[in-house]
Write a protein that binds this DNA or RNA. Structure first.
Lengths: 198, 198
DNA sequence: GTGTATACGTACCGGTCAGTAACATTGTCA
DNA sequence: TGACAATGTTACTGACCGGTACGTATACAC
């Protein structure tokens, strides 16, 4: 350990944090390749050497952006609208309700992790690796929730929900007047058709 | 020798065509932003001025790529596996069967049109405009097919299929072992749950 | 042959990009 | 007050990028 941590007051916002915040916003909105490091540091109000003191390369910064994005995602997914759900069906539907409403808003840009995969096809890109690991986890989580819903084939319902959600991410940024509008209805249809009637 | 213009054989493949072919392959596989015009012309076996005689700019070339991609898409969609279908349900299922099988193959890169939208968030980008117009058309076509299937709510089933297909495009390039495996089952579920029983 | 149009290549430009070297400045704590 | 860590300042590099000015070869018309 280096020294004592500040006990009360908030820090003056470290350069690395300002850079992460700036990169997150710019990378998400405009894409990673489209944004230069100069733009990132300018918006963060810091200078380029500060960036390279905290991050080995732009790729490394992009990977950090991915990790931040993922953390933020899980917050929003596990507590849609800031609320906890005990019922798996209500949980997933709440997420999709909020998501599809955001997805038809102007300037929606989909999922930062999925987008990074499009920007960096190469499997050994650091950002892509983070994104890939996340998607694997997300798939597992959705299958889990599908099982909790009582699906006859939890793997299929989980995959169905994942395909639907990725479809919302994708089409949401293609048009404000797209199929995301129907997503909630589709989700209900999917779940109800997958859960054993009794 | 250098001269000798063979009179019978097919033309030596015009520079513009070679460039379109080269661009299509490279842009699809690596992304548009990731590929420089030098790489395009080198692969085409021509030189840069030839590119700029046929295309006003790289953006313009990208738009041409989009148009070529779209034409190719419609061929594959309207005749999945080279076969015509009179039954709408079978038609859509055939497309999804082939698509999801491709989507789990190594090196799959999703839909070039959707990917371009991710790479170019700005609405006035030429490539993005072609992509946007296409997606609008595709949505209309899917609703049409949904109506032909006898869906209670053709708009919802059409949107459901579009969300599913875009989900396949997206997840297919994220992993070879992804939810696209379940896509055909999901499509059947979706259609059967949407078509009026009798 | 000589004009003329078409198709293509050689060589280059200015700008931007990621990344770095060297040094100055500040704030914090002991 | 002195030392240290974090940050700023300035200036630079080499690679690459989109784009272009300009010269060249072939084919056909007359």
């Amino acid at each position: 350990m280096t020294k004592t941590v500040d006990p009360s007051a908030d820090r003056p916002a470290r350069a690395a944090d300002r850079i992460r915040a700036s990169a997150s916003e710019l990378f998400y909105r405009e894409g990673i390749r489209a944004v230069g490091v100069d733009e990132v540091v300018e918006r963060a109000g810091v200078t380029k050497p500060s960036l390279y003191r905290s991050f080995a390369s732009k790729d490394d910064l992009a990977a950090a952006y991915m990790r931040d994005y993922e953390a933020n995602f899980w917050e929003k997914f596990e507590k849609p609208g800031g609320k906890s759900y005990s019922d798996a069906r209500e949980h997933v539907l709440a997420y999709i309700r909020i998501l599809s409403s955001n997805a038809v808003a102007e300037g929606y840009r989909g999922c930062g992790l999925s987008n990074a995969t499009v920007e960096y096809p190469s499997r050994d890109n650091p950002a892509r690796q983070v994104a890939g690991a996340h998607k694997k986890l997300f798939r597992k989580r959705l299958r889990e929730l599908a099982a909790l819903m009582g699906a006859r084939q939890p793997a299929v319902l989980g995959d169905a929900l994942l395909l639907l959600i990725e479809g919302i991410y994708s089409t949401g940024q293609q048009s404000e007047d797209g199929p995301a509008q129907s997503a909630l209805a589709v989700a209900k249809l999917l779940i109800d058709a997958s859960v054993a009637k009794r």
